[in-house]
């Protein structure tokens, strides 16, 4: 009998953090343009020591202004999607659940496309122009979250099956709207919408947005983590969980809202990147077990590592062009999914 201890948790997270660090360093090095990380490191040290005031322009802008924000975005998005995926799998008691199954990403897509169309009518100052699409996406997601909640609750509580049904129906409906909107879009808007729908980290969001999303995701993930041991029990069934001391209605609401917000944040800055939220939790369960106190943090790290790697592949494999991150995660994710399926069946 070896119950989970804080020590084991920290150890595993440290190992994953180390792997993430190594992956980030490699990702900083790789790209369409050659950079010397040694030179970068040397310049950084010099600046920190006050010996010089700037990083050499040969690679400073590329690494610090282009690659680093993109990698940080990949970390936040990957971690958010994985934690949200694990949470939805517990909430809906369904191993096939992913962050998008309740229609959040479709709602965000509708919001983003409408924002794109609106953007052309208004001419905004640069600071706001960059925020309109993510804001529209988040608004679309929020409306969808509320709508699905209203559909999915009975007698004042969230009912898992009804929620799932309501979410799937909403998603289909929103997909139809997206198809309709896409058919009416012209030229530039269509291209922008397509990029967004495929999932892409190539648009550098404004700094303010990055901070907002980072902090918001942290808060939401923390809220979910407070229910981690409740989620362990919830998997056994709500009646059992209630009799073991879980306040099931409260836990359901907290997890639903927080996981949806995590998804909404991730999707509003990067579009729908698929398979991460579905598969990273399963991989972490294979490695570390289903205890959510371990699963949630390790999924966060695992998702961050996965998306950073996928994004690095996406932007280097056909350099100078890029393929979308969503394509890479799908190409890798589908075979892994099949592997998981067979493992479960055997």
């Amino acid at each position: 009998m070896r119950p989970l201890t804080l020590g084991r948790l920290l150890l595993r997270c440290s190992v994953l953090a180390l792997i993430l660090f190594v992956v980030v360093v490699i990702a900083l090095k790789l790209g369409a343009v050659q950079v010397s990380l040694y030179g970068l490191g040397r310049d950084l040290v010099r600046v920190l020591l006050g010996q010089s005031s700037a990083i050499s322009s040969d690679y400073g802008m590329i690494v610090v202004d282009i690659r680093l924000p993109r990698i940080l975005l990949a970390i936040v998005v990957g971690a958010s999607l994985s934690v949200a995926g694990a949470s939805f799998q517990a909430l809906l008691r369904n191993p096939l659940a992913d962050p998008y199954v309740l229609g959040v990403s479709s709602g965000a897509a509708v919001g983003a496309i409408l924002a794109l169309m609106l953007e052309n009518q208004l001419s905004l100052s640069p600071e706001f122009a960059g925020l309109i699409t993510p804001f529209g996406a988040f608004l679309g997601a929020a409306i969808t979250i509320s709508g699905v909640y209203l559909l999915g609750h009975r007698e004042g509580q969230i009912d898992s099956n009804t929620l799932l049904l309501g979410g799937v129906i909403t998603m289909s409906f929103l997909q139809a709207i997206i198809t309709f909107l896409m058919s009416t879009l012209a030229g530039g808007n269509l291209r922008g919408a397509s990029f967004w729908l495929m999932g892409s980290l190539s648009t550098l969001p404004p700094r303010s947005l990055l901070y907002l999303v980072g902090i918001g995701s942290l808060v939401a993930a923390g809220a979910i983590y407070t229910t981690a041991s409740d989620l362990n029990l919830l998997l056994a069934g709500e009646r059992e969980a209630t009799h073991l001391g879980v306040d099931v209605p409260r836990v359901r609401v907290v997890v639903y809202v927080a996981a949806s917000i995590l998804t909404a944040f991730a999707v509003s800055v990067s579009g729908s990147i698929g398979y991460v939220g579905l598969l990273v939790p399963h991989a972490m369960r294979l490695l570390f077990g289903s205890d959510h106190r371990m699963l949630l943090p390790t999924s966060a790290f695992g998702g961050a590592i996965a998306v950073v790697i996928a994004d690095t592949i996406a932007r280097t494999i056909v350099a100078p062009s890029e393929i979308s991150v969503g394509a890479v995660t799908a190409l890798v994710g589908a075979p892994f999914f099949i592997y998981l399926l067979r493992r479960r069946l055997s």
Partner: peptide, 15 residues
């Protein structure tokens, strides 16, 4: 079996 101890522990805890 350890799940039975959930009722005695605080919200975020280890057994």
């Amino acid at each position: 079996v350890l799940q039975g101890r959930h009722a005695y522990n605080r919200r975020m805890h280890f057994e």
